[in-house]
Amino acid sequence: MRNSRVFFLLALLIAVAAIAWYISSHRTSAGEVTVYYSKVDGQSEIPWTISARAQQPGESAAAYAQYLALYAASQAVAGPPSDVTAIRFPAGTQVLSVTVDGTTATVNLSPEVHHPGDGALNESGEFKALIWTMTARPGIDAVAVRVAGSKVATLNGGSFELDEPLRRSDW
């Protein structure tokens, strides 16, 4: 009798913990995105979480995922608050569109991203932040980069290769 009460309480505790975990894990993915920025050492990626709007009534899960992907890409390109030291995309660079096809997100950047004379540290750090951010989205493991809608081998005068989808393992 005593044993069964202990067992019941234990089961109740596990159930409450499971529900709490479920709610917390689903709440964070609903209204937040994780964005990464590259430290100036060129080696470390720092995640930070920003809130995003919640899914609207009548908005499909796919449309909401699309919104979150665009939002995350835009935040990665905008970079962290200005008091944070980070490798940043050239001023004025914008995300024109994001499409997700299978496990690959295609991020279309505005031509301001071309910034001749940038060295490997800058180029690599910019795209590392973007790729880390996008591949933190569920189901995305690669990011194809376009500039003004076109595929490019590298940025103008740059060295970093952009013509194939990028993955975290490229770094």
């Binding site: 060129g42 080696q43 490997a120 060295s159 970093f160 290769e161 990028l166 770094w171």
Partner: peptide, 11 residues
């Protein structure tokens, strides 16, 4: 020396 860094450089 910032060391050896893996990076997808085209060349």
């Amino acid at each position: 020396n910032n060391g050896v860094i893996k990076d997808k450089l085209y060349v």
